[in-house]
Design a protein around this nucleic acid. Structure first.
Lengths: 193, 193
DNA sequence: GTCTATACGGCGATAGAC
DNA sequence: GTCTATCGCCGTATAGAC
């Protein structure tokens, strides 16, 4: 028989996983204490016991998913091809869909917005610092194209593409992606040295 | 005494204006039949009479505001400095805030999303067509930087900047804007010819 | 501590009265 | 055309079982 602590962890994980799944499948609007409880196989009151407000629940999902992502990105930033790693991470569709869901959610949930903003600032600064040193190797001029601008663009472009495609706008996307990938091929060739 | 038709138009306009104002001030989540009715000075049932679902109400606001904007942008696209006009339009803060509100809203309101997607595709194609002919004048290579990619970027960058700043992320924004404006200064100098 | 059951006011939506 | 009554679901609060 599992201990009380193990059961607690188990149910907490189930609640967080159920919430994330609901957000991806049906949007944050479908996240209610009752729907989460049903999907996680617990009582609705229990969800509210651990997460007194829905904001707390959303922030819990955000933190549990983001901490790991930030670690991975910081590693990638110190890897062989940080720019390409950043580009590919932002192109990850399910991760981007969840981030967009949180951005939409944050629009008028200040508590959620703060957590996203902090995480975004933290990871961007880390990546910028990691790639700045390589600018001479890339053959790029810091004044013409500063590292922070490129890091912003490599994250923003795929996200905006996915956001627009979700709405039914597609014009210019393939061309933009092609431009960026030709750029990456030039400054970060696949075969190192 | 105003005619019945005039009163109808008057109340409809009041409802649409109240809805848009509520979206900008407190977010689409605050838009309810009761709140719109209170702000517009009509009965809640009347709002629902004209807009049977909230989706209908949102689409009404979207259409009433967007048709005019699209006209203006198409004119701008045929103007002296189409790229700069596009860039400045996307940098308009209140318009972008409302668009972002609708994008967030559309995430799981398919009816609203379709209207935005159609409008986005329409205006982008119009702008691309308007600027394509000038590519040789700009001194740009259609393969290196296709018109559709640049049009996408000029709209997407300011929107993502505003979106992130609303969440508390600022890193790289000023640098990115500076890069784009140096580019515009080069291909579309302020003094023509 | 963990967890369940129940109650309350507000919401979108519907049907139908005037 | 205009407005009210009503329904089911929501977030929230609380009382109490284990």
């Amino acid at each position: 028989m599992p201990s009380a602590g193990a059961r607690r962890t188990e149910k907490l994980q189930a609640i967080l996983a159920a919430t994330e799944q609901l957000m991806l499948e049906q949007g944050y609007g479908s996240v209610t204490y009752r729907s989460v409880a049903a999907k996680a196989g617990v009582a609705a009151g229990l969800v509210q016991y651990y997460f007194p407000s829905l904001d707390d629940l959303f922030v819990g999902v955000l933190r549990s998913g983001t901490d790991r992502v930030i670690e991975g990105l910081e590693d990638a930033a110190r890897s062989e091809h940080p720019l390409r790693a950043l580009w590919e991470y932002a192109n990850n569709r399910s991760g981007t869909a969840l981030l967009m869901e949180f951005m939409a959610l944050a629009n008028h949930r200040p508590g959620v917005g703060e957590v996203i903003g902090e995480g975004g600032e933290r990871v961007r600064c880390a990546v910028v610092e990691a790639v700045s040193g390589r600018w001479p190797d890339y053959g790029l001029d810091e004044d013409t194209l500063p590292p922070s601008a490129l890091v912003f663009l490599l994250g923003a472009i795929p996200r905006m593409v996915h956001l627009e495609e979700g709405l039914g706008t597609f014009a210019g996307h393939a061309e933009t992606v092609a431009v960026v990938e030709r750029f990456l091929d030039r400054v970060e060739p696949n075969v190192a040295d």
